[in-house]
Amino acid sequence: MRYLLLNDLNYLVRFQKKIFITYLLVPLIYLSFLLAVNIEINLELFNKILGINADFISFDWLSILLYIFYLSIFLYLAVTLFILDMKSGAENLFLRMSYKKWLFYKLLVIGTTLLLMLISLYLVLGTIFSLIINNFELKIMINTFFKNFSYILVIQSAFLMLYSLYFKFKIIIFIIISLLIVNFYKFPTIIEKTNIFVNVSIYFVIFIMFIYLFKYLYINMFEKK
């Protein structure tokens, strides 16, 4: 576990610095712009900057862009970390642990990375908003944070499972796109429609399914990496 964690952390710090900087800079630039044009700063704006009230029905394109921006970053990092051990030095890890143990730890590391990244974003934006808005409630922000985290965790793990399936069955790419489209319409706003308990339950179902399915998929992933 320690080797896996350090290897992934080292990779992120060494090769994904630009992604992290962009991840924090984009919302800050957007917020600075809003402050410059004197737009009213309220809780709705906080949610908008986090891309969690993207409404695909009334089509608020800036919110949608931010939603896609965050989701793309989280999915990109998840996939990059997922295939890292298969791309180089596979013999160091896989001859010492079973594929099940590896997958279990890997999903844990990816989930932890997501958690730390979201905490840093909420800390930065939360601090700024609490300075600007008098009645900015910490309780609401924490609730929003857990909704956001559990929502992305589900999307991320489902995406990784479909990505692994893609190596065996190419048709899966179409399912991924279809699911994303369905997701857009079914969940127009994370903040309104998401239930933390439901998300956590779905995550565990995906987790168990993934561990079961992975034994049929890992060799195809090795061969194509």
């Binding site: 080797y3 350090l6 290897n7 080292n10 710090v13 060494r14 180089s88 030095g89 596979a90 013999e91 160091n92 001859l95």
Partner: peptide, 11 residues
């Protein structure tokens, strides 16, 4: 095993 290039944590 050591297959192709060795790979470790750089830092």
């Amino acid at each position: 095993a050591l297959i192709e290039k060795p790979s470790f944590i750089p830092d």
